[in-house]
């Protein structure tokens, strides 16, 4: 069972990518997995290259959860994304 986080702990998820197919796929995947898991998230698309510098990312798409970089390069596998929301952003 997943307890939906309260408003104050709403997970902030950023998908960093510059208008590519894989970035859109990743965004949709994260959205879908979070919805299926019943986790309320604030999902944001980021295409500002300065943000890449801020997170030290050299590959896109990249995923940042609550300020922590959890993925970079290519569309993540679904089970990887599921782990982010089931066990919290620990991977």
């Amino acid at each position: 069972m997943i307890t939906p986080p309260s408003r104050s702990t709403l997970t902030q998820v950023k998908v960093l990518g510059i208008g590519c197919r894989r970035c859109r796929d990743t965004y949709a995947l994260v959205e879908d997995v979070a919805r299926t898991a019943g986790v309320a998230i604030a999902l944001e698309r980021v295409d500002d290259p300065q943000q890449f510098v801020a997170y030290g990312v050299m590959r896109s798409p990249a995923v940042v959860i609550d300020g922590r970089l959890v993925h970079a390069g290519g569309r993540p596998a679904r089970d990887k994304v599921e782990r982010w929301f089931h066990e919290g952003p620990t991977t």
Binding site: G17, I18, C20, R21, P49, M58, S60, A62
Partner: peptide, 17 residues
């Protein structure tokens, strides 16, 4: 090196940096 043109910008910045 695996490369996708969508990574061109972050890669470019990372190299220059």
């Amino acid at each position: 090196t695996p490369f996708c043109s969508c990574s061109a910008v972050p890669l470019f910045i990372g190299f220059v940096q």
